[in-house]
Simulated assay, not measured.
Amino acid sequence: MSFKSLAERQILKAQAEGQMSNLEGEGKPLPAHAPGAYDTAAGMRIMADAGAVPKEIELKKEIDIQRKVVKEAEGTPNWKKEMAKLADLQLRHAVEQEARKRFFT
């Protein structure tokens, strides 16, 4: 069963049970352009509302922090070590992005 048909089934079930009434944003138009696919954006929003952060987002935050560490370490003996950490985080982030893209296609 594809993700799309599973999602459709869950939406129809929620509508039948009346769970789709009085939701935040009900009756408002969708944004003109959302970053990425709507199904991915909706999934990310649901996870964020539930307090679950995808590994991809956690890694992005770690990369931002590590970039600052690398900048501060520039010209010191620790610079190579910090650059290696940054490269590892970037690789892991790319792997997570690719896994998400493959999962949703």
Rank of each mutant, 00 (worst) to 15 (best):
E82T: 07
V70E: 04
P35A: 09
D88Q: 13
P35T: 10
D88A: 13
Q19T: 00
L30V: 10
I65C: 00
K85N: 09
E56C: 02
A87K: 15
M47D: 03
V70M: 02
L89H: 03
P54S: 05
A34D: 03
G36T: 05
E82R: 09
L89Y: 10
K55E: 11
E72K: 15
I57C: 00
E96M: 10
G43D: 03
K68E: 14
A52I: 15
A52E: 06
N78T: 13
L91M: 12
Y38C: 06
E96P: 00
K80T: 10
K28H: 08
A32G: 12
D39T: 11
R67E: 14
A34L: 15
R92S: 08
D88K: 15
A87P: 04
D49L: 14
A42I: 14
K28E: 13
M47Y: 02
A87W: 02
E72I: 11
W79D: 06
G36P: 07
K28T: 10
M44R: 15
V70G: 06
M44N: 09
G51K: 04
A94V: 01
E24Y: 13
K85Q: 08
A87H: 07
E72R: 15
I63F: 02
E74F: 08
A94T: 09
R92M: 07
G75T: 06
K61D: 05
P29M: 04
M47H: 05
I46L: 14
A84N: 12
D64K: 10
L30I: 07
L86M: 04
R92D: 10
E26G: 09
G51F: 04
E72A: 14
G51V: 03
L30F: 09
S21G: 01
R67W: 01
A32L: 14
K81P: 01
M47I: 01
V95M: 09
D64V: 03
